[in-house]
Amino acid sequence: MPSPRYWREIPNRFRLEAARCTGCGTVAFPARTICPKCRGRELESVRLSRHGKVVTSTVVRVAPDEFMMEAPYAMAVIETPEGARLMTQVVDCDPDTVGPGMEVDLVFRLIRKEDHGGILCYGHKAVPVGG
């Protein structure tokens, strides 16, 4: 993840900034300039709640090199109360316990490291509510 590309995404990666269409109410995460549902162009910035629910999930056992140390790890599509969905790892739990319907909090974590002394890339991961 070269640094300009990572830096550009800071608003959504660090603060979960999304866009809500003032026309139809659809919340797009990360923010977009055109509503994916009604093609409206009037979107306002909203911050997603730091919690949500698992829509679907898996446990990645054969991981990309960058995530080899973390495998096996759970990954899930999470839906926040605003109706936005995002894909994250689900951590701080037995990955086998993660499944659809699980309530999670979104926490700030290190996501990946650029090779050979490159930048550290942060963002959000999910943690089951109440451990």
Binding site: F108, R109, L110, Y122
Partner: peptide, 16 residues
């Protein structure tokens, strides 16, 4: 710390 935790993530969690 977990593999995804460091001084920065701990600072964000405590700061929040």
């Amino acid at each position: 710390p977990g593999l995804d935790e460091d001084t920065i993530t701990i600072s964000v969690a405590a700061g929040q």
